[in-house]
Design a binder for these strands. Structure first.
Lengths: 160, 160
DNA sequence: ATCCCTGCAAAATATTTGCACTGAT
DNA sequence: ATCAGTGCAAATATTTTGCAGGGAT
């Protein structure tokens, strides 16, 4: 092995432009006693590039290209560890597999049950509902984990 | 076998008081060309007795008692077939396994992410949100499939 | 009599765990 | 030097599928 692969040196070499987006994550990770390893860098890269809402499957496919040496098990364990640390989170878009996000890009989701389209909406839209539910039931909605299914504008029009 | 087990004769023998709730389902099933079999009767019985929101696991446990001869495979296939026919439906309460309902008992759900409590709420509470989302995004929310996570009144108080 | 539904076995998927080694700090 | 993180193998859990027989209509 002529090439040392210390993350400290090679970090983000595949996508230097992502360094900006990930640096805060690394800092937070380090601050909490986490270690910056090559697999973690590769996984976080896979998470921030391309469309977010990355499924495990999508991340695996991406890693097969960018870092085939990263084992599937590591992906599961790393996602769980990073979520535990609060730097990423996952949610379920109704049925189907869960999707993963960087924790700094939370938003509300609408999922089209017909075509699968994901519409991101203004969190403020939910304020009224949140207040009403809190008042009537004492239930504090966590709208970040909301998954709202229905028909997107296109599919609604097609079916009317 | 001295005991014939034709569903037509022995239907609901275990829980005759459930006949009323299930008769419309059987009619609908028959009307669509479906057949009333003993496993289906047992599965529907398991579905309507006890708390609804039945998970596959719960149904299996119940069937192990009431109809141990019903194979797990049959449970999956039957649930899928009955959903196809529109007499039952399932939804996902956030993470965890999906739950199954009779189609005639739809309601909105709030799921406590801390203790797992399920709060059923007035569908009218969502009217404002539904209108707002439709207006702004052209997205038709299907509030039956809504899964709303958060903290129930008890857990919210404990954590405050 | 037809063919939908079922049981059984086996396969396919998805996720988790034990263990010893490696490498980030 | 420590111990968190990893690879690998195997175990678990969950759901699906092929096929032949049985029963509801």
């Amino acid at each position: 092995m002529s090439e040392p692969k210390s993350p400290g040196e090679h970090r983000l070499s595949a996508r230097p432009e992502l360094a900006g987006a990930l640096e805060p994550v690394f800092e937070q990770l380090r601050a909490r006693g986490g270690r910056i390893t090559w697999p973690r860098v590769a996984i976080l890269e896979a998470l921030v590039e391309g469309p977010h809402h990355a499924t495990i499957e999508r991340l695996e496919a991406r890693l097969r290209v960018t870092a085939p040496e990263v084992h599937e098990t590591t992906l599961y364990r790393t996602l769980a560890a990073l979520e535990e640390l609060g730097v990423i989170y996952h949610l379920h878009l109704g049925h189907g597999p869960s999707v993963w996000h960087l924790a700094d890009t939370r938003h509300e989701h609408l999922v089209c049950s017909s075509c699968g389209a994901i519409v991101e909406v203004d969190p403020g839209d939910f304020d009224g509902l949140r207040a009403s539910i809190a008042e009537q039931y004492g239930f504090i909605l966590d709208t970040h984990h909301f998954v709202n299914q229905g028909l997107c504008a296109v599919c609604a029009t097609d079916q009317h």
